[in-house]
Amino acid sequence: MEVTITINGTPVTSEIEPRTLLVHFVRENAGLRGTHWGCDTSNCGTCVLWVDGSPVKSCTMLAAQADGHEVTTVEGLEQGGVLDPIQQGFIECHGLQCGFCTPGMMMTGRWLLDNNPNPSEAEIRDCISGQICRCTGYKNIVASIQWAAEHPATSEVTA
């Protein structure tokens, strides 16, 4: 079947098997490899991206479901050569080590701040509780999101 998914503002049209997972489409058909996969069972959250502005686990969604919808990935965070505050926060606060869970964490973190600009530590921890990081012990991820909250974005992340 042919699908067209707008990814970071650019429509991507491909002929795919209906069983193609969205994470696979984004990585292989659109060539955007910043979105990773880690568990197959929607438990780890390394594959989190946005569909129509809400984060989803893209290993557990078919590309066909996103046909005609807007997807935003980690590659869409940086605007006009300026890092999004969530990206800058992860750098400033050492919120990443191996970098594998980082794109998913940042997509969730930025979504949280869009809906709750001043989250408490507990709200941040709850919001990323469906995502696993094996390196950081989470403390610096929480700090990174807090840093971003304290340095609000001047531009909107749009699909």
């Binding site: 984060p55 989803v56 969604m61 469906g130 995502q131």
Partner: peptide
Amino acid sequence: IADPIVRNK
């Protein structure tokens, strides 16, 4: 129930 991201779907 599950986590905030799964709860979105």
